[in-house]
Design a protein around this nucleic acid. Structure first.
Lengths: 209, 209
DNA sequence: CCGAAACGCAACGTTATCGTTTCGATGGGT
DNA sequence: ACCCATCGAAACGATAACGTTGCGTTTCGG
């Protein structure tokens, strides 16, 4: 069922023949408006309220335009989420592990409390038990980038002799990021500036060379 | 609409007149089976799959029996969740802050990974942004009991002179419980025994007198 | 033992969402 | 200038869940 006539490729970006279109090209603005509307509804009203008709209405788009691009709601959501969480941060380098970790903590705090990420994360976590594609998105776009950042600056601090060489980088990563997640997403509070330094200091106290 | 005729009290337990019934009493077994079925479905298939008909079917109960007790799905879920997360733990007392914190960490780890709590928590977090009643359940039944435990043993350790008197108990609480939540629920892994001690030790390193 | 209330079951009408289809209009390619 | 695919809008049938009602049965209390 659902013959998907001929085109309806899986994803959106032109796959093999980007210049082969002869008629009216698909509107990139509509594409982005659809993804944005999906994220907005998910963040504001939860996954129960996320309907195709609601997305179309909010994006100022016909349902046809959505179904021409994605075969179902789930794949649309996968692309919408992937689209929002891809924001690569540069590796901070202040010459001190303490300053670097605080900088990263500020970035993470910002991402959880400013944009929609903090509000949609619980829904993604709840879905990832049953949907491997969502688990991969969370891993690939949320966890891994931060892990790379923290592990990078920890390694640099070890090389400088600032930190013990035998400490567990994974443990440092979890101890720095978990309380941020907990306070921002679980408790729904924005951790104040000073608390970031306090958390970092507590972790560092047992890591110094 | 939905006049709620006369009874249909808000909650389930007999409120004012427990002995006023004249006909057949409501089945306590059915009541519990309904709550259990709701939790099971929520943990296994997510909040999207949580339907009244599904709950009735799984509980071996007619829909009528459900609607006679709760006016709608949300209030049923509120009671089901409150029902599952009420398990008071005794305050551990091993004479050492380290042993006590590890004991608490083991209890928390158990609750997240053994029962359904870890699987339904993301759904509750997602809902608590829009439903104050769920926010209160999470606060009252999940966060507060653990906070009381940790704050209690920290205070005792301070009194013993084992820990610095000027440390922030809230920070200790967050630093101990957040990584457990993160690894169990977010990453979906069961933290191994040794990692609990490592996490506790990292926190304690900056707290000792 | 009699009656009242709760029980499981099945069917009901209502509403909402899905995914599809049709329609006339639009606008970028060639 | 002419295509022609895409556009937004609207309606479609199908499916599913909601919440209600009636029915015959079961189970207690008085």
């Amino acid at each position: 069922m659902s013959p998907t006539l001929e085109p309806a490729q899986v994803a959106s970006p032109p796959e093999s023949a980007p210049t082969r279109g002869r008629g009216r090209p698909r509107s990139a603005a509509a594409h982005q408006a659809i993804l944005d509307a999906a994220i907005d509804i998910l963040a504001e009203s939860g996954i129960e309220a996320l309907t195709v008709e609601g997305i179309a209405s909010r994006a100022g788009v016909g349902k046809t335009t959505i179904y021409r691009r994605w075969p179902n709601k789930e794949l649309l959501l996968v692309e919408a989420v992937s689209n929002i969480v891809t924001a690569d941060e540069p590796l901070p380098d202040n010459g001190s592990i303490r300053e670097d970790l605080i900088a990263i903590a500020q970035v993470i705090r910002e991402r959880y409390t400013r944009g929609p990420l903090g509000r949609i994360l619980p829904a993604l976590l709840s879905a990832q038990l049953r949907r491997p594609e969502f688990a991969q998105i969370v891993r690939e776009h949320v966890i891994e980038p931060r892990r790379a950042l923290v592990l990078g600056i920890v390694q640099r601090a070890v090389d400088r002799g600032e930190l013990r060489a035998d400490l567990d980088p994974e443990l440092v990563f979890d101890m720095v990021t978990a309380p941020l997640f907990y306070r921002s997403v679980v408790l729904g509070r924005t951790p104040p500036e000073e608390s970031l330094a306090a958390m970092v200091d507590m972790v560092l106290d047992s890591c110094r060379a």
